[in-house]
Simulated assay, not measured.
Amino acid sequence: MDAASPTVGVEEEFLLAEPISGAPSPRNVEVATAAAEIGIDLQLELTRCQVETNTAVHTQTSELLDELRRLRTAVAGCAEKHGARLLAVAVPPAVPDAFPVTDTPRYRRIERNFGMLAHEQGLCGCHVHVGVPNRETAVQVGNYLRPWLPVLLALTANSPIYRATDTGYASWRSIMWRRWPSAGPPPFFDSIADYDDMVEMMLASGSILDTAMVYWDVRPSATFPTVEVRVSDVPATVEETALLATLIRAGVVMAQQDRRPPPRVSAELLRAAYWKAARSGLDGAGLDTLTGRPFPNHTLLARLIDYVGPALEQSGDLDFVTDTVEAVVARGNGARRQRAALHAHNDVIDVIDTLAAATLEGCY
């Protein structure tokens, strides 16, 4: 494992929506079958209105971006064949009272144990895996990344509209997701043994059913030799997903090179910073997790880029990051786009159309 240039892979979760009403479309099995016929292995999520793509591992941002483009284009075509639209959106803008749960033994067990939480999901995130030498390194890297997680959430916020209403939050997914007992801001762990003890307690208590239900926003992957960062809404565009992955990979590099101890940001301060990021998104104020002082999220994002700058220069990604951030700030992330679409005509179908276009923006 090259600590200076680790591998990166991305999982993107998508909503399937009805073309006319925009309501969630329970066709994930059909879409996954169509994708398999063209060589794409889609993952089925908890509800039948979701699918997940998985990239290969990459060392070059340009190659990752190309694969993200190909996957979105191909899966959107599979969805269209089965009367659905593929949307990169983190909560369904138009939703029923409950979502049908995907019929697998594991998901039915989750349904039995967690009740309505399983039926009010339809939440779509983006998970970034970065290669690390071992699980101990993954835990320590997570400690360094903890202070920056609210900034990444604000950057990618893409879920302000729910039940055809502006929730007042840029990332409503983040608010809803934290109802799960193992989700949200990760604790500070002194070691992998400390981490494993906590997971064992949650298993014994029934607050999780298996290690795949450790939903903290940074965790050692349960299946890969990686640290997995799960804080983000699924970004509206492929460029924003590649930006997220590039920033996280650079953060992992810097964490392994940092000779200072990781900052022990308190759980209370981190939760407050999460709430501010979810509420305000990229366009509002956030909290500096090291001082507890409010700053515009643009400023906090600039500080993150300064921190990971040496790693971005080393990988050749600094220009991509600065150019893409400039474009996102000028154009708006998914949250700003959705709100503009809703408030233009007060019609949720305009939001669906905007999301469908953004999902394939820059793809081929």
Rank of each mutant, 00 (worst) to 15 (best):
T167N: 01
A335I: 04
D306R: 14
V351I: 11
A17V: 05
S280R: 06
L203A: 04
V51Q: 02
E37T: 08
Y195R: 08
C363D: 07
P24C: 05
A164M: 14
C126M: 14
E80K: 13
A183E: 03
T137Q: 11
G286A: 09
L355R: 03
A88W: 00
L304Y: 04
T241E: 06
R163L: 14
H298C: 05
V253A: 01
I208R: 04
C363R: 07
R179S: 14
M202D: 03
R249T: 05
G22A: 11
A84W: 02
L42W: 02
A357F: 03
N113G: 11
P186Y: 05
M198V: 14
E120N: 13
V139P: 00
R260Y: 13
R178A: 11
P263H: 07
A4P: 06
A157E: 00
M201C: 09
P185D: 07
A302V: 07
V75G: 01
V8W: 00
A204M: 13
A285H: 09
G122S: 09
R331Y: 03
P160S: 06
V10L: 14
P220L: 14
R48A: 12
Y195D: 02
M116L: 15
G131K: 04
T156P: 01
P235K: 09
I248E: 00
F320K: 08
A357C: 08
V141A: 05
H82M: 12
I352T: 07
T61R: 13
R112Q: 15
A32I: 12
W172R: 13
P105H: 09
H127N: 09
L270A: 06
S171W: 07
D197H: 11
W180F: 15
F320N: 07
M1N: 05
Q43K: 15
S266N: 08
A273M: 05
A138S: 07
M201F: 07
V57Y: 08
E13I: 10
R339Q: 12
D166K: 02
P96G: 11
P310M: 13
Y274F: 14
E18R: 11
D347H: 13
R230K: 15
V57R: 11
A84V: 06
T73C: 15
V95I: 10
D190A: 15
T7W: 14
V252G: 04
G142A: 10
L312G: 01
F189P: 02
E239Q: 12
D319L: 15
D197Y: 04
R249N: 06
L287W: 05
T226A: 10
G286N: 08
